[in-house]
Design a protein around this nucleic acid. Sequence first.
DNA 1: TAGCGTGGAGAACGCCCGTTTCCCGCGTAC
DNA 2: GTACGCGGGAAACGGGCGTTCTCCACGCTA
Lengths: 186, 186
Amino acid sequence: MPPFDTEAARTRLLDAAEELFYARGIRSVGMDDIRTGAGLPLKRVYALYPAKENLVEAYLERRDVRWRARLAAAVDAVDEPRERILAVFDWLGAWFREPGFRGCAWINGFGELGSVSPAMARLARAHKQAFADYLDGLVAAAGLRADVGPQLLLLAEGAMVTAGIFGTDAPAVQARAAAAALLRPA
Amino acid sequence: MPPFDTEAARTRLLDAAEELFYARGIRSVGMDDIRTGAGLPLKRVYALYPAKENLVEAYLERRDVRWRARLAAAVDAVDEPRERILAVFDWLGAWFREPGFRGCAWINGFGELGSVSPAMARLARAHKQAFADYLDGLVAAAGLRADVGPQLLLLAEGAMVTAGIFGTDAPAVQARAAAAALLRPA
DNA sequence: TAGCGTGGAGAACGCCCGTTTCCCGCGTAC
DNA sequence: GTACGCGGGAAACGGGCGTTCTCCACGCTA
């Protein structure tokens, strides 16, 4: 059973899972929906991930890697340390404008399952901690006071939530403006 | 059937629904859990709200009124216009510290059901719009530039989300400090 | 006291969904 | 050509849940 096109099947499975879970939420998506989306027999789905929870974890872990890589790539296109911080919010705006944007997968997942699934709570905390650490690094590299980092995190999280609920990218430019104000020396 | 202690029953029902829905999410809570929590026969539950969705709406509407009233009461204890804005974040901190705090009921509900329930999406937007309008009012009363209002909204939303995920009240003081910086003239 | 209706408790129904199992067809080996 | 085994599709199973229905105990009326 193992050596077929297992890796290709895994990719298609995660692609289908990501599209469906992100668009509709986790509980709203049945394993049958995913099987249909991936074009895989249910038997193979369960051979790759023995339970739905494992598939959810794999989806969030892959998305975490990709999301942070895309953010880092956008930031790395900029040199000046303070501009790099603002680039975070520019990239958020680009993300908000993507078709199908529905807010942050971890905030949504935490709201849906955080109190009922320790795994979901852990993944959400890990992702947000990594994002917070990344922002702290940018702040340190710019020689700014350390307490600006958490403040930028709040702006970014607020922008994600607000953009998701209202379906507009305006929060990105509002957050960017607020961030620029916070970067000015006291 | 109508004139018994219908209003008392309705209150107990909404109390139980609020406690359970907020703590565990909406789909994780069964009508039987609510019936047990309220100590009401299922027949009476369905007499008061013909479907779960109606009960969810009633829960969110009552919570909306109460949440905004509590916020307004905390703000109204302060006179100076800029201090009133900061009082918002002080009150958020007090809220975060309450036992059982699990983030914002509308953010969580939107993440869980926003894409699958138009009613949930509408309620979340209405609540957040009302909060945004309230902040805009405080900003106008303080004679500040209008674009500070949405920035404060992002800080507050980000604080709710981050406090919910990490289970700490630190975001309230971080958001308060950021807000204070934004209130300083450019 | 006999009859009636009202309200409470929980069983029952139908549906959905995560997971497992069955069966059939095809390719391979001898 | 035939037996074997593997993989695919889908049906089956078990549990949970929203909603409805049944049954019984109690209180009022003549």
